[in-house]
């Protein structure tokens, strides 16, 4: 592995995303959504205050709206990651661009890793900027500050990186459309398993819980999403729910009573590495 070559490809990938205006379109859309969120939250807060709703209730309401916004943003981010990463290798193979490049002293693994690095940098940077902006504007208009915004943004970026890794790995072997579609389905499945698993716990359905646990290990995106929620959930909400012992709340996909365990985070890091290595191995064997 030659770091110089990996960085050349990573730089090329970042340049491609900026040149093709993808980055600017995403940023523009995000700014528009952030402005819309700011306006919406400000309206809600003003109306509630005018009605004489207690400030504590307003804050709790805003915190839940922010989690909902974060969920929609994580969904958009996941889709963007899948559709940027799926063609990163696949379309170079389809158009033949890859032939001239791989005839140079460039290893296939260096191409895959460079693509991954470039995409991860862009997606993580995009998640950080847009996520921080959304949290910041909500704070500005409502006064609500989530307890650990940096944790939420970090898990948001992590989830997006996990998805782009899967899409890139699939695209190193499959046509870009197939790679993108499979990634989206897997992402949806992970989310569904998360909801189902929580329901299973709430209703004491042990076999279902075990089955969904397996899915959540295979597809860790939902577990990472819980990290986002935990970073945004005000301590008061946690206190109230645990005090009431409302186990059924666990079934709510927009609720997390604890951060993802360290072992799960470690597994998610390993998962990303394993998927990336599998993608490299598949690409190495591919006939071009």
């Amino acid at each position: 592995m030659t770091p110089r070559l990996v960085l050349i490809i990573a730089g090329l990938t970042v340049r491609e995303l900026t040149r093709r205006r993808v980055l600017w379109v995403l940023l523009g859309l995000s700014l528009a959504s952030v402005a819309f969120v700011g306006w919406g939250v400000e309206r809600l807060v003003s109306l509630a205050r005018a009605e004489g709703v207690a400030e504590l209730q307003v804050r709790i309401g805003v915190s839940q709206v922010l989690i909902l916004i974060a969920f929609m943003f994580s969904f958009v981010l996941a889709m963007s990651a899948a559709f940027l990463a799926a063609p990163a290798i696949a379309s170079d193979v389809e158009t033949g661009t890859v032939h001239a490049m791989l005839a140079r002293p460039l290893r296939r693994s260096e191409l895959v890793l460079g693509r991954w690095l470039g995409l991860s940098a862009v997606v993580a940077g995009y998640a950080a900027v847009s996520g921080s902006l959304a949290i910041g504007i909500v704070r500005l208009v409502s006064g609500h500050a989530p307890p650990e915004p940096q944790v939420a943004v970090a898990f948001l970026a992590f989830q997006a990186i996990a998805i782009l890794t899967l899409a890139l790995a699939l695209g190193s072997r499959l046509p870009s459309m197939a790679a993108g579609a499979i990634t989206v389905v897997v992402f949806g499945l992970g989310w569904f398993a998360g909801v189902l698993g929580n329901l299973a716990v709430a209703f004491d359905a042990a076999p279902l819980a075990a089955a969904t646990d397996v899915v959540r290990v295979i597809v860790p995106t939902d577990g990472l999403w819980r990290g986002v929620v935990f970073g945004l959930e005000p301590p008061l909400v946690l206190l109230l729910t645990t005090a009431r012992g409302a186990a059924a709340l666990e079934a709510n996909p927009f609720f997390a009573s604890a951060p993802p365990p360290a072992a799960f985070v470690a597994w998610s890091v390993a998962w990303v590495a394993l998927v990336l290595l599998a993608g490299m191995a598949a690409f190495r064997r591919r006939e071009l």
Binding site: I8, R19, G96, H99, A100, R104, P105
Partner: peptide
């Protein structure tokens, strides 16, 4: 491969790069 120049049958280069940039990329690679 570092001492071989190759024009593929399917000659496609990054459409979003200028000719000069494509050559810079290949010179670096």
């Amino acid at each position: 491969r570092g001492r071989v120049g190759y024009l593929p049958e399917l000659f496609r280069y990054q459409a979003w790069l200028t000719a000069h940039e494509v050559l810079r990329l290949h010179a670096a690679l």
